[in-house]
Design a protein around this nucleic acid. Sequence first.
DNA 1: GACAAACAGATTGTCGACAATCTAACAAGC
DNA 2: GCTTGTTAGATTGTCGACAATCTGTTTGTC
Lengths: 229, 229
Amino acid sequence: MAKLDFSPIADTTRRAEIVALLRRATLTGQLEPGQKLNELRISEQMRVSRAPLREAMRELVQEGILTSIPYAGTFVIEVTAKDIIDAYSLNKVLDEFAIEQTWPQRDQRFFNELDRRHEAVKQATRAMDTTRQIETALQLHGLIYEWADNSVLLETWQRLTSRLQMYFALHQRARNEPVPAEDVHETYVALMKGSDMGAAQRHAREHIDLDFEELLAYARSLEKRTSKN
Amino acid sequence: MAKLDFSPIADTTRRAEIVALLRRATLTGQLEPGQKLNELRISEQMRVSRAPLREAMRELVQEGILTSIPYAGTFVIEVTAKDIIDAYSLNKVLDEFAIEQTWPQRDQRFFNELDRRHEAVKQATRAMDTTRQIETALQLHGLIYEWADNSVLLETWQRLTSRLQMYFALHQRARNEPVPAEDVHETYVALMKGSDMGAAQRHAREHIDLDFEELLAYARSLEKRTSKN
DNA sequence: GACAAACAGATTGTCGACAATCTAACAAGC
DNA sequence: GCTTGTTAGATTGTCGACAATCTGTTTGTC
């Protein structure tokens, strides 16, 4: 018999599709922080009843990108400077751990996947597709978490990365500038292929710090405005 | 005018109460790993319709203690030896970070709270209330996360601690032995009050390793059995 | 007897309607 | 004018019923 691995077929519930739609809308910044999600309006737009929509919202609330107040409504989370700082400082710690766990497990498949994802970032950059650029960069970064073979760690990172994606998207939207064309991931990929784990860990920290500064500037600008809905 | 801080009033939705009930049932081991949650049966027992029950279940699925398969059902997560290893190795990393963040923020209120929680553990131990003993021990442990002033970190730990609580509860249930009467937290509390941060971090690691060994033995025994529902 | 198709029962997913609650505008009393 | 009570509209929370899907059994065919 032929040795063939089938991947699980897609979830075919309305709920799952709604989750995907809302998540994407939130993470790309189409839904603004603090914005209220009107159940009736959204359910009519999606041609769906409120039941699966509400269940989808509960999921996203637990995922940390929506927040819910009983009898008041469900809102996109607000973004503060402190949130960004917190997320990044935790990300540093997790990165160091993920690299440590992944390091001895690196093999040819890992390197190939690393190159593939790196290529995806470069392609999105050339196409000036900022949304996709953020997505692919985070996916490149996430490989060490997938390879670390620790399901709790992976889960944790996925929650964290949701927020990071949202922060980056908001940042991009706010500054409205073209994306840097240079390849900031070249060194990272090279180090992950090398033999000096400490160097890779250190670079991950510094690399993060780089973008972090830009994000922080954006966060501080948010602090100055009064919150709106 | 008197200076009085009011805390937010409790959520009064059925959903929130259902979540609390189901979470407790799962974490104390009343619901066994792999067990299916029949919506109709549970909703009738709770005298509630399926809508808020299903929403509650979605939350717990995202919380990581239930798992859902479309059109098949929602189940309590299975516990494998690897899950326990993964959770603990991540916990070590987070502990080290939490202590680092908390360290400079320690004040009298922190020490008082530390003592209060330590006392709660001792009381539960004296009362031979194993469930409460697990709860209070984790709460004692969680103080450094509350004090670290990093909301993402706290959230992460709360998700992780849910699982740890479940693992410990299952372990206790399985061995069916009286709890050790000795106070294993004395040293930890003393170190958290001291001035050597490195020592506190090291102890946190080793202290965890201690209970870890017991848990692992339990996990391995699980591996040998075939899964049931 | 082995296999596949059809069926029945149970369970999950979704819907539309109703109840509970909130918000804002307005009126009443001091 | 300011506060308090009332009301109307909108929105969220909950319910009961129906549709879609799965699972195990039975039936029919070879």
